[in-house]
Simulated scan of single mutants.
Amino acid sequence: MKRVLITGAAGFLGSHLSDRFIKEGYHVIGMDNLITGDMRNIEHLMPEPHFEFYHHDVTKFVHVPGDLHYVLHFASPASPIDYLKIPIQTLKVGAMGTHNLLGLALAKGARFMIASTSEVYGDPLVHPQNEEYWGHVNPIGPRGCYDEAKRYQEAITMAYHRYHSLETRIVRIFNTYGPRMRLNDGRVLPAFIGQALRGEDLTIFGDGSQTRSFCYVADLVEGIYRLLLSDYAYPVNIGNPGEITIKEFAEEIIKLTGTSQKIIYKDLPQDDPKQRQPDITLARQILGWEPQVSRQEGLQITYDYFKALPQDRLYEESGHRAFADFKKV
């Protein structure tokens, strides 16, 4: 039985990846420091004989006994609310965490994958964004802690690939949604649904003309899985090219939830990207992959999940209590 280490396993995406690898017959070792992850996301996996969990911070030395065939580094704060609260820890998990896990993969002879992001393109001057575009990023702006952590991840991963001949994979993830997202983490989709469920007006930052492209989590996991098992070492965009403005999206959420809230507008945060749409030509050619779940279908599943949550979950603050442990690190 092949063994896979998944960091960030208690997070939104990491928990879905853990589900997929268990389903595919792997022994899954989940690792998370729970700074933004939530054990509720993986509690259904704890009785599984081929799932084990390590409560550990990957910016410290990482030891996993026994063989490892794959190392997937998906540990990182991913929402603006999170990484603006803990910018140094965000940089550390991208730099020191990636270095530690690359060393582990090299020692174990394991294939290594990092979760990069469309944020490496910054506020893009090329549209849609393809993998050959180098980006338009402000390294010293408030978002720089996340954007540059991810760009560094890609650089050091390619250095290990070239210098050590390590098998590596880089997935550039565009906006993803689905069950297990945190309602109040600052990302547009859970923010809108959370506001609708609480009877609040929907907040748009800017004039709502900026665009996003939303990929349902099951589609994303399928793309990640195919990329991991491919023989392609360079970055690949995985996302849904169906572009929509934020204002149109807010109107979709109001229609979906049957609420009567207004849309209110606030100032656009610094360096917030105006456009975001993946060019997935490479994923189609190399992986034979493209999204299968329509936004209408995926939103309904996601809304039904959130609507079924206990009432107190609708009001949980973003972030985990562990933020306090990292605020000066």
Rank of each mutant, 00 (worst) to 15 (best):
Y133Q: 12
R151Q: 13
L202R: 07
D271N: 12
I81M: 11
R20Q: 06
P47N: 09
L91C: 07
G122A: 10
R321M: 05
E251S: 12
D82N: 09
R187N: 02
H44P: 00
H99T: 08
H56K: 14
G208N: 10
F192L: 11
N100I: 01
H127P: 08
A155L: 14
F12A: 01
A283L: 04
V171N: 10
Y305Q: 02
V4M: 03
Q275H: 10
A196H: 03
I238W: 00
E43D: 13
I140E: 09
S18P: 06
H63N: 14
H44D: 10
Y152F: 15
L256V: 02
R313D: 10
M96G: 06
S213K: 00
V120R: 09
F74P: 02
V293Y: 07
I81R: 15
F51H: 02
Q270H: 08
H99I: 13
D219W: 01
I170H: 13
Y216P: 03
A218P: 00
N240L: 07
E131V: 12
L101E: 12
L287S: 08
K274G: 05
S79A: 15
H16W: 11
I170K: 11
D312T: 03
R151P: 12
P235W: 01
A115N: 11
A283G: 04
V188E: 05
L183I: 00
S76A: 15
D38V: 00
G66Y: 12
F21T: 05
R313E: 10
M158G: 04
G94P: 03
D304F: 00
M1C: 11
A10L: 01
T203E: 12
L84E: 12
F326S: 06
M181T: 00
E119G: 06
L183W: 00
G194K: 02
A149N: 02
R3A: 06
T157R: 05
S15K: 06
T245H: 03
K85W: 04
G208Y: 05
D67P: 13
R111A: 13
H99K: 05
I42F: 03
P269Y: 13
D57A: 08
R180V: 03
R295I: 07
E222I: 00
I114E: 13
D185H: 04
G144E: 06
Q285W: 08
H56P: 07
L45N: 07
E317R: 09
T36Y: 09
L104E: 13
H16S: 10
G298D: 02
H27K: 11
G141I: 00
D185I: 01
F174M: 03
M181F: 01
M113W: 05
L91G: 02
P310M: 04
L287Y: 04
K307H: 08
M96F: 14
L91D: 03
K328N: 15
Y225S: 04
G208R: 04
D325N: 11
G97A: 14
T117Y: 06
Y83W: 14
H127E: 14
E297K: 12
R313G: 02
E252L: 05
W134M: 06
F249M: 06
I193P: 07
I244N: 04
P269C: 10
F51E: 05
I156T: 10
L17Y: 07
V329H: 14
A250L: 01
V64H: 14
K2N: 12
R284N: 06
F174N: 00
M31L: 15
Q153A: 14
L227E: 14
Q89S: 09
R180L: 13
M46S: 08
M96Y: 15
V137A: 07
R187G: 01
Y225H: 11
H44L: 03
S116P: 04
K266R: 15
